[in-house]
Amino acid sequence: MTYAQDEFIPEGAELEENPEYPTAFGITFTPKVSGVICAVLGVAAAAYLGINFVKPAWEVYQEAQTTKNTKQEEIDLREEQLDQAPLLEAELQQAQAQRQQVLNLFANERTLDTLLLDLNRFIESRQGQLVNYQPIEEKPVPIEDGSYGSGVNGKLKRQSVEVTVEGGFDATRSILRNIEQLQSLLVVKDLTSNVAENQVLVYENGRLVPQGQPKLETSFRLDALLPLSEEELAEAAEEAAEEAAGEEGAEGQE
């Protein structure tokens, strides 16, 4: 059995060689042209939808994603902080204990009130005599002159006292070597010593025999160091900030 290769054409039908297609604006809309136009319109419609609907929606999604990531990081950080809370609390307590130990090394207002009495007892117990005790300042003043290093400026204050002691050589040496035992962070400065009474020599059995020791008069400045209180530190920080602001304003005017 064989089949003809040509398509079957019903009887009475004629094959149109030039079918008629709609025409507009000088363009004949053949199937091929119509397909191209539909494709172009489809691309344009997709672009329009993308610009007016898809892009804003995507931007909103990106913002939501960023917010979600940020909140998740905050949650993770809070959880980590909660996990570390016991360790941080222990470190805080240790730091506070160390801070208190350091503060205990300094003098305080209470020990300053009894400094004269304590110093006199200390000197007499070592066979010396306190002959002068004269405070240089009426009250402790902040250290700003760098005499104890620039790192101390604005953090410590001192109460300075002029002291004069009389005693033998051994007594004077004992007083100066052990004065730090009297009170924490007492600093001896500007030390001078002179002979107040010469040693007595007695002639016995054809030779001179020294009697006792020469009496020395020793003067020095005694600095009692105290930490600034929290209120004083806050006031110092405020004054420093005001000075810095004033300097910046002066530079701006120049």
Rank of each mutant, 00 (worst) to 15 (best):
K139Q: 14
N52S: 04
D113F: 10
C38P: 05
L77D: 09
A240H: 02
K157H: 08
Y61T: 04
T111D: 15
E243I: 03
R221F: 03
V36L: 08
E251S: 09
N69S: 15
L88F: 07
G50W: 10
A237D: 01
E138T: 15
E162N: 14
G128Y: 05
L88R: 08
Y61K: 08
R121K: 15
T192Q: 02
R126W: 00
L87M: 10
E137S: 00
S150V: 08
M1G: 15
L117I: 11
L87I: 12
V161S: 00
G42I: 06
Y133K: 12
R207C: 10
T172S: 13
V209Q: 07
V202Y: 01
T2P: 11
S229F: 03
Y148V: 03
S147A: 12
R173L: 14
N104I: 04
A24T: 13
V163C: 06
E74S: 04
L222C: 07
E14A: 11
L88P: 00
V188H: 01
P10G: 13
Y21H: 09
F220Q: 00
L88D: 05
N153L: 05
E11D: 13
Q98K: 04
V187M: 00
T23I: 15
L185I: 09
G151M: 10
L15E: 12
V141Q: 10
P227R: 10
Y48R: 12
I9H: 08
L117N: 06
Q181V: 12
V163Y: 00
Q127I: 13
D83Q: 15
A45Y: 10
T30P: 09
A237S: 01
A250Q: 07
E11A: 15
F53T: 14
L186H: 08
E166T: 05
K189F: 12
G151K: 03
G146H: 03
Q72I: 11
I37N: 03
L119M: 13
A107H: 04
Q100W: 01
E80F: 15
E231A: 04
E91G: 04
E242F: 00
L201T: 13
I179Y: 01
N52V: 07
R173G: 05
E239C: 05
L103R: 01
T164A: 12
P214Y: 02
S34E: 09
G149W: 00
E197P: 08
E14S: 11
L82W: 08
A244V: 01
L77E: 13
E248K: 04
A64F: 12
G12A: 02
E166R: 11
Q96K: 14
S160L: 12
E74V: 07
I9R: 05
A97I: 11
G35D: 10
E20S: 03
T30M: 08
F29A: 06
V165I: 07
P135E: 10
G167V: 09
R221C: 01
L15R: 14
A245H: 01
V161F: 04
L191T: 07
Q213D: 02
I143Q: 02
A4K: 10
V195S: 06
V60T: 14
S193R: 03
E254D: 11
A244F: 02
L116Q: 11
